[in-house]
Structure formats: C-alpha cells, structure tokens
C-alpha cells in the first residue's frame, strides 16, 4: 500500500505539486492521468525516490513505513523509464540480471539461482530466446519488455511506470497494454503508471487519478470519472464534450452544461413537449464508418453543438443539411467552472 500525504514539490520557483494526497491499495493498478505539466510524472518520481519532496513537503509511506528519506535504490521499487534506459553495452540477459549481480555478497543470489530467475523473467515477458541480443537489436516493444523484466528482477514491492507505452506505435501499444494489465493481475503487484492518454488509462486502470496543474482533480474508477466527472477539467479531458450555456436543465448559478456528443439524441418531432428538448439546425453531416457526426446550431442562442449517432440511426432519420431537428440531452452534467484555479 502506498500512501502519499500532502506532498509538495517546487522546482526553483515553479510549484509542480501543491500538496497531493493519494492512497494506493496493495495490488491495485493506478493511472496518473493528465496533460503535460500537470505534475503526474513528478508525483511518480517522488514515489520512486528519484526526486525528493520539499522540506516539510508531506510524507510518503509504503505499507505504513515512512520512506520519504530513502533514495530510490532502498525503496524496493521497480521503475520503468519512458525511454526504457536499457544498458546499451549489456545483453538482454545481463540487463535483467544486473540488479541482482551488483548486490552485496550477502544478499546476492548464487549464479545458478540468478540464471534461473532471469530466465523465468525473460519467459514472463515473452523474450525467452532473446537473452543474448543487445538492446540495439530489439524492436520498441521488445525493449519495453526488457525494461519491465529489469524492473521486476529486484523483486520490488511497487512497480512504477513512466509513460510505459509512450514510445510505441499505435498497434503495439494496444497489444502491450492489455498484456501488461494481465501480467499485473497475475503478479498482484501494486502498480502506478503515468499516461497522458485517457483511453489507455480508462481501459486498464483499476482507478484513475486525474491531475491538472499540480493538483488532483478527481480519483475514481474509470466508470466513476467518466460518468460522474467532478470538474469541468475532468469532463473535457476525458473525451470530446459540448459545453453549452443556459439550458433548461441548468440549476446551479453560473453553471454550464456539458454533454458528450454520443449523449445527444436527435428527433424529427417534439415528443412530449419536454423541457429537455432544444431546437437546432443541421449544419454539417459527416458519416464515416459505423458512426456519423452531426454539427448543429441552436436556434435560441446560435451555439454550436456536435452530436454523434450510429449510422443506422442516421439513416433512419434521413437528415439533410439545413433541416430543423430537436436535440435531446440524454446525459447532461451541470458543472460550475472554478475560475480560481
């Protein structure tokens, strides 16, 4: 279990973290999600011990033990770098074995045990027969798995991954992240990873920590943060969204309504005179693949609204550009923009 309490970090005059609190349960897979400059990597590096918090800048506990003063080598963490940072002059096998070889003789495993352990790890990351290769002779995905095996070799209690899929191309990314998810489940290892890709975070994490400008905006399961975003930032960061001014559903003062394009329904007729319906003109229709996008303009205030409908529904409606339709907000979020941030 990792506990982070009121963690503060300043680089020169730039405050990267403004007192962050976080609790990661044992065996959990947590994603730190946010745009660049949100402090997610800083938080990860502080947990790892690659950076240290400000004086009086909070506390980090592993299983209840304070580790804030320990450097990275003494925290029992496996850290995987975005660039992988494999040792270029060592073979794949030696890269993985290295963390064990350099231990003091008391805790160093015997050569036969070491070989067995490294080979097990290489099997685990599906690189069993590539032990003799050098990092330069591997593909990006293979390098990433060597980096992972190296991080696991020291038998860490916590696994920390900095943008683990950042340097891979789209196809390999998707394969590897599912594979990593399964591996993490199998090992039951408490894992924190950093990403700026919301799809990645929502797909594999048990809980997502959404960060912005050195603060945590929301913590929750992918379902929670997607369906019940706490702030406009979370709403906007987790996918495309329409931000609309006053609508019939507005309740709070100064609130805006946020609706995702796929949460908008279109009808030809007013159904029951419901207050949730707005009238709009179809401005643009784009059908591509299984879905279509409709750009609309509200008649009451001229606001642009984007809707996403299935191809079947669009064909059923048979809309033309310039026609009038009724908008139904299937799932609207009323959120107040906090200008104090």
């Amino acid at each position: 279990m990792i506990e982070v309490k009121k963690l503060k970090k300043t680089f020169g005059r730039y405050a990267a973290l403004h007192g962050v609190d976080l609790k990661v349960e044992t065996g959990e897979l947590i994603a730190l999600l946010g745009p660049s400059g949100s402090g997610k990597t800083t938080l990860l590096r502080l947990i790892a011990g690659l950076e240290f918090a400000d004086a009086e800048g909070g506390e980090i506990l592993f299983d209840g033990q304070p580790v804030s003063d320990r450097p990275v080598g003494q925290r029992g963490v496996g850290f995987m770098f975005q660039s992988y940072a494999l040792f270029r002059h060592l073979s794949v096998f030696e890269n993985v074995a290295f963390g064990l070889r350099v231990r003091p003789s008391k805790t160093r495993p015997k050569e036969t045990d070491l070989k067995a352990r490294v080979n097990d790890l290489l099997q685990l990351v599906q690189l069993g027969d590539l032990g003799k290769r050098y990092p330069a002779q591997l593909s990006g995905g293979q390098r990433q798995r060597v980096a992972l095996a190296r991080a696991l070799a020291i038998d860490p209690s916590v696994l920390l991954l900095d943008e683990p899929f950042g340097a891979l191309d789209a196809k390999v990314r998707k394969e590897l992240r599912r594979w990593l998810r399964e591996l993490q489940r199998r090992l039951g290892l408490t894992t924190v990873f950093v990403t700026h890709d919301q799809e990645e975070a929502l797909e594999i994490a048990d809980r997502v920590v959404i960060m912005s400008t050195g603060r945590i905006e929301q913590i929750g399961t992918p379902q929670e943060v997607y369906d019940h975003p706490a702030t406009p930032f979370v709403m906007e960061f987790l996918g495309e969204v329409n931000r609309m001014a006053t609508t019939p559903t507005d309740t709070k003062n100064g609130a805006s309504t946020y609706v995702r394009p796929h949460d908008i329904g279109l009808r030809r007729e007013r159904t029951n005179g419901g207050a949730e319906e707005l009238e709009a003109v179809v401005k643009l229709l784009i059908v591509r693949g299984a879905n279509g996008r409709v750009e609309l303009e509200r008649i009451d205030n001229g606001e642009r609204v984007e809707a996403q409908l299935s191809r079947a529904r669009l064909e059923e409606l048979n809309l033309k550009e310039g026609e009038r339709v009724f908008i139904e907000l299937l799932n609207a979020h009323s959120l107040v923009v906090d200008y104090s941030i």
Binding site: L50, Q74, F79, F98
Partner: peptide, 9 residues
C-alpha cells in the same frame, strides 16, 4: 537513474 533504481551505488 535506472542504475540507481536497480540499486547501484
């Protein structure tokens, strides 16, 4: 940093 992370002094 990765050398430090796997425990090298």
């Amino acid at each position: 940093e990765s050398a430090k992370a796997i425990g090298l002094n």
